[in-house]
Amino acid sequence: MSAFPGVKALVFDTFGTVVDWRNGIARDAKVFLARHGRADIDPHGFADAWRKRYQPAMEAVRSGRRPFTRLDVLHRENLDALLGEYGITAEEAELDWLNRAWHRLDPWPDAIPGLLRMRPRHFLAPLSNGNILLLANMAKRAGIPWDAILGAEAAQAYKPQPEAYTRTAEILGLAPGEVALVAAHNGDLAAARRAGLKTAFVLRPTEHGPDQTTDTRAEQDWEAVASSFEALADQLGC
């Protein structure tokens, strides 16, 4: 018996749910900062500071203050501003390399085994604020077995706008109730539920580091709650 009767597609939040963004960004930031003589800067703190600019940058798009702008561009603008605060300058090639750290993130250890178990019975795709090239490069490097890659450009909307969810279902030729969002973030799941999607919470208790205080438990009665992708596969009968 599946936790999702009638669901044909599973779509996944990516940053934090499928991949470990914090350690991946810190890994490449450490190299960059050492090269610029700034080993005094904690690379995980650098990753957190860069990520802190993520939601405000997307909010400018969501609010209509600027046209839809892909995440690679927003990440680069945020990186330039952050480096300005630290007084660091670098060549364009170095900045491009560091900005593409978001393309090189590693999956959580259970992610790919769980996805491989779920794939025979469900269509799998990211439902991410990431852009198509970012998500494609990430999947190619890490071997993430998506059936399609739907970046935010496809929906022309950033979560939690309802269009991010409903347009994804429409692109897949499915009703919202035939699609389930898998995410480690209660807010994302709440927005997906309001848009008519089914929901699955997967706990990622160290996404924000060892002292994480957010999303440490399921905050609503999501259709599925699991400790890992493999545990979710169990609940789906995969």
Rank of each mutant, 00 (worst) to 15 (best):
R27W: 02
R27S: 02
D28S: 04
D28E: 09
D28K: 07
A29L: 01
A29D: 05
A29S: 00
K30C: 03
V31T: 09
V31I: 14
V31E: 14
F32I: 05
F32E: 06
L33Q: 05
L33P: 01
A34W: 07
R35S: 08
H36C: 05
H36V: 01
H36S: 03
A39G: 11
D40K: 12
D40S: 13
I41F: 03
I41Q: 06
D42F: 08
D42H: 11
D42P: 02
H44L: 13
H44C: 02
H44F: 12
G45H: 11
G45T: 09
G45L: 04
F46C: 02
F46H: 08
A47S: 12
A47D: 04
A47H: 00
D48I: 12
D48C: 10
A49G: 04
A49C: 02
A49E: 14
A49D: 09
A49L: 06
W50I: 03
R51Q: 07
R51Y: 08
R51P: 04
R51E: 07
R51N: 04
R51F: 06
R51H: 10
R53S: 05
R53V: 01
R53Q: 09
Y54W: 10
Q55V: 14
Q55I: 08
Q55D: 15
Q55N: 11
P56H: 10
P56T: 05
P56Y: 09
P56D: 03
M58Y: 09
M58Q: 15
A60T: 10
A60S: 13
V61G: 05
V61H: 04
V61K: 01
S63P: 07
S63V: 08
G64V: 06
G64D: 08
R65Q: 15
R66P: 13
P67I: 12
P67N: 14
P67H: 08
P67R: 09
F68P: 07
F68V: 00
F68G: 05
T69Y: 04
T69N: 05
T69M: 04
L71P: 02
D72V: 14
V73P: 07
L74W: 01
L74Y: 03
L74N: 00
H75W: 12
H75P: 07
R76D: 07
R76L: 11
R76E: 15
E77L: 09
N78E: 04
L79V: 06
L79K: 02
L79W: 00
L79I: 03
D80I: 14
D80A: 15
D80F: 11
D80Q: 15
D80P: 03
